[in-house]
């Protein structure tokens, strides 16, 4: 159970999340990508926590990340719903009123 494989998994998940965030037009799909990236970070935290003498700081931080992610998801989805009501679409390329 080498740490490298966990770190590589985290990196892979992060990059997959990044790819999803960048390529998807739908806002909810983008959110899914963000969740993936957060989980990749969590994985790193928990993995290093496994080799930590105290063993708990990483886990506690992971807990907080999960909590924040939940808050983020709630607010983000609220925004998406509102945006959908306003623009009648959830496609990010069409929600560009602020472009220069």
């Amino acid at each position: 159970m080498s740490i490298d494989i966990l770190l590589l998994l985290g990196a892979a998940l992060f990059c997959i999340g990044l790819a999803v965030v960048v390529t998807r037009k739908n806002a909810i799909a983008v959110l899914i990508g963000i969740e993936l990236m957060l989980n990749a970070a969590n994985l790193n935290l928990v993995a290093f926590s496994r080799f930590d003498g105290d063993q708990l700081q990483g886990q506690i931080f992971a807990l907080f990340v999960i909590t924040v992610a939940a808050a983020e998801a709630a607010v983000a989805l609220a925004i998406v719903v509102k945006v959908y009501q306003h623009f009648n679409t959830a496609d990010l390329d069409q929600i560009n009123e602020l472009k220069g």
């Binding site: 159970m1 966990l6 969590n42 926590s49 496994r50 992971a62 807990l63 999960i66």
Partner: peptide, 8 residues
């Protein structure tokens, strides 16, 4: 779980 972080 395998990493010993059951609560997480």
């Amino acid at each position: 779980v395998l990493l010993g972080a059951e609560f997480v």
